[in-house]
């Protein structure tokens, strides 16, 4: 095979080098900062692996043990019909916790979001305070809220509902206020120009535009809360998590596998329903989720 090549003139190369010096710098020199960052991150990863026990022979013992645990899961079996009914009831409780917690958070989140939105609340201090308190609510994990609410209403699913509500209030406040801030200004101006007050402005200028977005976010969170509600039972706040944690601790892995499959099916079903509803609400437009 003959090679076809343009004859390259050495003086032309020199001229090019003079005119565009940055093109002739080798790649590693151009990306020095980036490469340094990669090396730093890689070193941190290795340091982390070493200090957190990955250099320990326990890792290999553990992998072997994990294999036998998975073998113990087969076949998935609730033991008796009675147990299966108990698990199904607990699963229903989990779904109820997720649904109610999210709905309550959404209802409470709307007024807070209006306070935290820059284009509704002109007062800087109110705006700042509501933003920071929402951050605090979000910063505390839902399990911690569950432990606090258990002090108030006792063990059981109600504490789980309140815990999800408290932690999602922070999330919804933030998401809703961002949606409100991004909303179209023109309807509001229209309402103001016809003499509408501030409540009219919110009801007829802002809400019609942002409600579908909010509804879609609520649906998404019902879906994601179904997942997180599966662990709320670990601290005694109701739902299937209690049974899951209990069966793992007593090493009844056939029961564990049965519960795992129940949860997978339930989450897949909720996923499917909520995706359908969301598409119906907002079309195929994608909504930014934090």
């Amino acid at each position: 095979m003959t090679e076809i090549r343009e004859p390259v003139d050495a003086t032309a190369v020199a001229a090019m080098r003079q005119r565009y010096p940055e093109v002739f710098v080798p790649g590693w020199r151009r990306n020095r900062a980036l490469i340094a960052a990669y090396i730093g991150l890689g070193a941190l990863l290795i340091y982390g692996l070493a200090t957190l026990g990955f250099a320990n022979p326990r890792l290999f013992d553990g992998i072997g043990k994990l294999g036998s645990l998975f073998a113990m899961m087969l076949p998935p079996d609730p033991g008796s019909v009675h147990r299966a009914v108990i698990y199904l009831k607990a699963l229903g409780e989990t779904l109820a916790i997720a649904f109610l917690g999210t709905m309550l958070a959404a209802v409470l989140g709307l007024p807070v979001a209006l306070l935290a939105a820059r284009n509704v609340t002109a007062n800087r201090i109110v705006h700042f305070l509501s933003r920071r308190s929402l951050d605090t609510l979000r910063g505390v994990d839902v399990l911690v809220w569950a432990l606090i609410w258990i002090n108030v209403v006792g063990l059981g699913p109600f504490a789980g509902v309140l815990a999800l509500m408290t932690s999602d209030l922070g999330t919804f406040g933030k998401l809703f206020s961002e949606a409100i801030e991004a909303s179209d200004k023109r309807p509001v101006e229209g309402v103001v120009s016809t003499g509408g007050g501030s409540l009219h402005r919110i009801r007829f200028g802002i809400l019609p535009g942002v409600l579908p977005v909010m509804a879609s976010q609520v649906l998404y969170y019902i879906e994601s809360n179904t997942r997180s509600a599966t662990i709320i039972g670990i601290v005694g706040a109701g739902g299937i998590g209690l049974h899951l944690a209990e069966q793992i601790r007593v090493l009844e892995f056939q029961h564990v596998a049965f519960i795992v499959i129940l949860i997978l099916v339930a989450v897949a079903a909720i996923d499917w329903i909520s995706t359908r509803l969301r598409l119906a609400l907002i079309g195929s437009r994608r909504v930014e989720m934090a």
């Binding site: 026990g53 326990r58 553990g62 645990l69 399990l143 997942r227 599966t230 899951l244 949860i263 989450v267």
Partner: peptide, 25 residues
């Protein structure tokens, strides 16, 4: 992997690997 929160995996891994940060990671 996505459906179950970390805590569920952690519960199982703690049995296999013992207490400590390793099962958490």
């Amino acid at each position: 992997c996505r459906t179950f929160p970390e805590l569920v995996f952690a519960l199982i891994f703690v049995i296999a690997f013992g207490l400590g940060p390793l099962p958490g990671v």
